[in-house]
Design a protein around this nucleic acid. Structure first.
Length: 633
DNA sequence: TACTCACAG
DNA sequence: GGCTGTGAGTA
């Protein structure tokens, strides 16, 4: 007799409820040493070549072929090369050069190269992870081809809710496997289902003998060689393992990546499963052996997702010793529900209240926490697939070396890099989803030795049909000018060199592309004329006229050429004033573009005082600067 | 809303 | 350790 009901089975077919069914089947798939594999494939190496992916002096991914030298992610490339007797094949990530808005690979270059001309100095470059995002999307697309129940958990991981696919394969598709083509009792099950001749609360028939021969793809966790298929959940897992096997094969055949997968009732256990055997493997954790798995492999609380840091350690402390953070300990000491555990945690928090051992946890969190621990320790913490929105935020960031950002010129050059990166990333997403994606918020964050300075747009509107790096450069530059004026220019206080500079865009508005551009931006154009004092309300053709004297950098319209020229002078001056004023050796450190600007400046004899601040040019033309067309108040 | 912390890969 | 992202908490 089965322990499951028809309701449990049918629930699998529901996108929103499948995870709640005792027959639910989740998978976690992880690309092995993703960055290293991506480079291996890109550069045409094989899996046996010991590739490591390098960023500056650090290794950020180690291929499985390179692990045999004992290389780990924390090694520097220098020490790793030594360990391996120079056998490693290091490949540096793609990089942007300061002042340039595109990334490039410089294969063969990197700090391990003794040839000085083949270095990639971290003060002048910024790492680009775009190539990996691109591969990640290709992989994700393959999962999506097989299933619409996919959660992208990170750049190299997905969760799958296999309930619906398993259900369909079991009950409505012809193919389960060759061994069951003639399975009469399965036919009967299907017939009952199709005729609707069942009571939803009645138990399912016993699993037919023929079905017990169903093959699993990958390894089933079963150290004591107990029977595999006995009830319907085992059948579902066998089908699930086949589905995941097919997806992983597809990924390997079409893209070349090997992956590891875990299949289990819950996301948490599936994730432990994918980590269990690597690379190129998959592990099924059957419900009836999940406790053996959790106990036998001596998992403790800190092995579980979101418990890997302080919280997990504090739980171990509350439970007295690290060993007693073990899953078995929790399950066996609180067998009758989470209430006892809840009381115990609260008691321990009180006991430890005058020590500083417990900092993150407090009694307001223990109720939910004890329920979660109670469930986790039984492999029954049910979490639905989280279908994430396209994007929530996007950051382009650079941690500076001491000479990477010593003045506003440098800062603006980095902003150009950020702008190129963000625009390219948005464009790729737009193409992938056939949407227009418009960020409403742009944040510039500068970190100095002493403080963080933060500027944010109100309501970002771009009036182009297409987003260009220029849009972000305009805004980023404006924000940077504000920050510079307030913290350096006006007060003449300590500000540079910056330790960090970043642009984060967020608050995305997403439009379907089947609308016309006018449909989408018609309203925005109105806002533009409304909120901008110095732009007259004009229609179509007349707008063109105004654009004759339009600063492309700020998108300010000027009424006369003279004003326009003055404004342009102001830009150059602003960009250059700091470099000329202070630190003369800066010029050594400038990129070609920056140096050209400097030369131009000398040639044109720009030394006479230009309009000094933004405010001045504001005042001249009225109360509102034209750049406001990009902001609301 | 602005900012910090925690966590993850 | 550097880079990118999410979510919770706090004021």
């Amino acid at each position: 007799m089965s322990q499951f009901t028809w309701k449990d089975l049918i629930q699998l077919n529901s996108d929103s409820k499948s995870y709640l069914s005792p027959l639910s089947c989740m998978a976690h798939v992880d690309v092995n040493a993703f960055f290293a594999q991506a480079e291996q494939i890109r550069c045409g190496y094989t899996r046996d070549d010991p590739i490591v992916c390098v960023q500056w002096n650090s290794i950020i991914a180690v291929s499985y072929a390179a692990r045999k030298y004992g290389i780990s992610r924390l090694d520097t490339i220098g020490s790793a090369m030594e360990k391996s007797g120079n056998k490693l094949i290091p490949i540096h990530t793609a990089v942007f050069r300061r002042g340039e808005d595109y990334w490039q690979y410089h294969d063969g270059c990197g700090s391990w190269n003794s040839d000085k001309s083949k270095q990639i100095p971290a003060n002048l470059y910024k790492v680009s992870l775009d190539p990996y995002r691109r591969e990640s999307r290709k992989i994700f697309r393959i999962f999506r081809k097989h299933s619409d129940r996919v959660e992208k958990a990170s750049v190299d991981e997905v969760f799958l809710d296999l309930g619906k696919l398993c259900f369909q394969r079991l009950l409505t598709e012809d193919i389960i496997s060759k061994s069951t083509e003639n399975c009469e009792s399965l036919g009967i099950l299907r017939e009952i289902f199709q005729q609707g001749e069942y009571n939803i609360d009645s138990t399912l028939p016993t699993v037919p003998e023929e079905l017990k021969l169903l093959n699993f793809v990958g390894d089933v966790y079963n150290p004591e060689n107990k029977p595999l298929i006995e009830d319907w959940d085992d059948v579902i897992f066998a089908i699930g393992s086949q589905l995941v096997g097919e997806m992983r094969d597809d990924i390997e055949d079409s893209l070349g990546f090997t992956t590891s997968a875990g299949i289990a009732r819950t996301k948490y256990v599936a994730k432990l499963g994918s980590n269990f055997k690597k690379p190129d493997a998959q592990t099924v954790i059957l419900n009836k052996y999940v406790q053996d798995f959790l106990d036998g492999e001596s998992f403790d609380i800190t092995s579980f997702w979101t418990f890997g840091g302080k919280i997990g350690n504090e739980i171990c402390t509350l439970l007295k010793t690290p060993e007693t953070g073990s899953i078995k300990f929790i399950r066996e000491n609180w067998p009758d529900g989470p209430q006892g555990l809840h009381n115990y945690l609260n008691k321990r928090i009180l006991e430890l209240s005058n020590t500083n051992e417990i900092q993150t946890l407090d009694s307001s969190k223990t109720e939910a926490l004890s329920q979660k621990l109670y469930d986790i320790s039984r492999g029954k913490f049910l979490l639905p697939l989280n279908e994430k929105p396209i994007v929530k935020s996007m950051m382009s960031n650079k941690n500076m070396r001491k000479d990477s950002c010593c003045n506003i010129i440098h800062a603006i050059s980095w902003i150009e890099v950020f702008s190129g990166e963000l625009t390219a990333r948005i464009k790729e997403l737009e193409q992938e989803y056939s949407k227009l994606i418009v960020p409403k918020t742009v944040v510039l964050l500068a970190t100095t030795l002493k403080k963080k300075v933060y500027r944010k747009t109100g309501h970002f509107i771009h009036n182009h049909s297409e987003l260009t790096p220029k849009d972000f450069i305009q805004i980023g530059t404006k924000l940077m000018q504000d920050i510079d004026n307030e913290n350096y220019g006006a007060k003449n206080s300590f500000f540079y060199p910056l330790l960090n500079l970043s642009i984060t865009i967020s608050n995305f508005e997403i439009f379907d592309t089947n609308k016309t551009i006018v449909d989408m931006f018609g309203n925005h154009a109105k806002i533009l004329t409304k909120t901008t004092n110095n732009t007259k309300e004009v229609e179509g053709g007349k707008q063109e006229e105004l654009n004759l004297f339009c600063c492309k950098f700020c998108n300010i319209n000027f009424e006369t050429n003279k004003e326009f020229q003055e404004h342009k002078d102001f830009h150059v001056a602003l960009k250059l004033s700091d470099a000329m004023n202070g630190i003369s050796e800066d010029s050594k450190n400038l990129t070609i573009g920056e140096r050209r600007l400097l030369l131009n400046k000398k040639r044109k004899n720009f030394d006479k005082t230009p309009p000094k601040t933004n405010k001045k040019s504001k005042g001249k033309r009225g109360s509102t600067p034209g750049i406001l067309s990009f902001f609301s108040k």
